[in-house]
Amino acid sequence: MNKLLIIFFLLSSNFFIKSTYAETWTLPPSGVDIFGQTKTIKVSSKDTLLDIARQYDIGQAEILLANPNVDRWLPEDNDEVILPSRYIIPNVDRKGLVINLAEMRVYYFPETQNGNKPVVITHPVGIGRMDWITPLGTSKIIEKKKDPTWIPPKSLQLDRIANGEQPYPSIVPPGPTNPLGKHAMRLSIAGGSYLIHGTIKPFGVGMRVSAGCIRMYPEDIEALFNKIPVGTQVRVINEPIKLGWLFDSLFIELHPPLEEDQEKYQDYERKVIAFINDFLASQGDKRMQDIEIDQEVLKQAIHEKSGIPVLVSLPDIENTLAINP
């Protein structure tokens, strides 16, 4: 029975897409934490994985993790490339913007308009590089600016000088050389010094390349900019391990930890097991007792850390027998 439900959901999730490469999805019903669709396409050697990632609204790290055996710069004709566009919704309030640094992705849960179905919008993001991490916590959007002017932070200027590079001008006006691109939204956190913005270097989306700001593909920030009101809550989390339900089946989505968290996640397997136990405990005794984890599948998922949700619970034989005697 569970299997049938899963198959039905995975097939019907196609219909949640509004357009071929849409990033707006109907929010799944209660009891389902997964949305989106993983697809496989054949590519041409004229493309790089970077081009494909942008075309399908996927981040650079995401597409590399999902396709470890495809050459990033020179895929062969007819190479099969996995598009990892299925996600487990982060286990926090489904409100405003949720940015998960470990998966380098933002989720937006807009207020539901009268009569409309609730939706979730997701895009890849670039985040702060090592030692420039975006601060965790809850804040809100305090300003939206089209064609923003950029005042480079002192720390970035000093870094460039230390690396023998030319510092930026003290003020960068709007235009093709402005790293913020055409849209910027200011966060209330840390005195308003962090932004969600566009870029003139789109291939850096889905990578750790910024000075702590959140970088988005120009087309994504433009779409989001028009939807997000000032005052929208922004929650920044750092969760390389995500768990979610598809009815009675448990899925896990694993990402490599950020560089600075390597020590904390040195024993990744133990972390995952503890995370699963805590998660199940928080769901109540019944779920804790009913769920049996497929250890082989879990080990493989831990080894791969592909960022793709993987079914890790074994079928509930007793319930299946009770339904289908």
């Binding site: 990033r72 710069w73 670039g126 590089r129 970035l156 790293p179 270097k201 291939f203 850096g204 990578m207 750790r208 390349v209 910024s210 000075a211 700001c213």
Partner: peptide
């Protein structure tokens, strides 16, 4: 080297 150069070229 290529990966690092690419990453760095994407820095702000």
């Amino acid at each position: 080297r290529l990966g690092r150069a690419f990453n760095k070229s994407m820095y702000k």
